[in-house]
């Protein structure tokens, strides 16, 4: 038996975990499950694709670094995609979610996110068609690293990026004033207000962080798999399952749960069959809801 599936699971778990951070923050701070989160991911991936194209036209080549399939253009494009997607999320909030949130019916906001999700996804399909796209056509050679596991340089780079983003996120939430304000608001909105915390500022920070991480995850999926309008929808259920398994509001929980789901999916592909991969997130979700709805690190049922 090859242990390669462990690495595959780790990679897809990292993508799920990165996306689930946004889901868990949106749920614990804005108090709704955002069905458009996967589509923010896809928009981020396409924003980077457009930027890579533009930069490639200027620079005149892919400019790959070392053994990687990508170079400075994709790195710059990823940063652009993160900023762009954050802007898109803020725009959506201003146009739609903030107005509905003000009416105080959480579930209407969920429904609006569902409508926005359909519109965003199909707009991508209209603009870019449904056929897959790639940042680079360069072939990657997987290097053996022992125990029959092989890894490509791209995979190494993106795992390092994920680890850096997650660590940075954790430090931000625990060490910075804005991060503390976000945690305070998620724990007790009324007390946060009388403490002097500006809700609008917390809401903005939540969208920016959630969307930027979604865009990063989108670029990761785009680099390692492919870019499709449906890429976000396919990851939505695993991301929700990770947010709930990790315990709503817990960033380390979401990341750990993302890895658990990624590994379980890879195991299912290995032992059951690739076609059943998408069922894993559902099985995990149902088990958590039936056994321990607060998840691994959740404190209260929300």
């Amino acid at each position: 038996m090859s242990l390669q599936f462990l690495l595959d699971g780790l990679i897809s778990g990292a993508m799920i975990g990165l996306g689930a951070i946004g889901v868990t923050l949106t749920y614990s701070i804005l108090r709704f499950s955002n069905f458009a989160h996967g589509d923010l991911m896809a928009w981020g991936a396409y924003a980077a694709l457009v930027a890579v194209g533009a930069l490639g036209a200027i620079a005149g080549g892919p400019m790959a670094i070392g053994a990687l399939s990508f170079g400075l253009p994709l790195i710059l494009s990823t940063l652009f995609a993160m900023v762009f997607t954050a802007g898109l999320a803020l725009l959506l909030d201003w146009l739609l979610f903030a107005r509905l949130r003000a009416r105080g019916q959480a579930i209407i906001v969920v429904m609006a996110s569902f409508g926005a999700s359909m519109a965003l996804r199909n707009l991508l399909e209209f603009l870019f068609s449904s056929s897959p796209a790639y940042y680079s056509r360069a072939l990657q050679v997987a290097q053996p690293i022992g125990s029959g596991i092989r890894i490509t340089p791209d995979q190494v780079a993106l795992l390092v990026m994920t680890a850096a983003l997650v660590t940075g996120m954790h430090l931000f939430l625990t060490r910075s004033q804005r991060g503390r304000e976000m945690r305070a608001y998620s724990q007790n909105p009324a007390l946060a207000r009388v403490t002097g915390i500006d809700v609008a500022r917390v809401v903005r920070a939540t969208w920016v962080i959630g969307a930027a991480l979604a865009a990063a995850a989108g670029v990761m999926v785009g680099t390692l798999v492919q870019i499709r309008p449906l890429m976000g929808l396919d990851l939505l259920l695993p991301m929700f399952a990770a947010a709930i398994l990790g315990g709503i509001g817990s960033v380390p929980g979401a990341v750990l749960a993302g890895l658990i789901i990624g590994l379980s999916e890879a195991a299912a592909v290995m032992f059951v069959g690739a076609e059943w991969r998408a069922a894993v997130a559902f099985v995990i979700l149902m088990s958590v809801l039936l056994v321990k709805p607060t998840g691994l690190f959740g404190v209260t049922e929300r």
């Binding site: 945690r183 946060a192 403490t195 002097g196």
Partner: peptide, 17 residues
């Protein structure tokens, strides 16, 4: 109080707003 934050963090978040 913010129950999931330490005593010091409760004060820190209030002092820093």
């Amino acid at each position: 109080v913010f129950t999931l934050m330490s005593v010091e963090e409760n004060l820190r978040v209030a002092a820093g707003v």
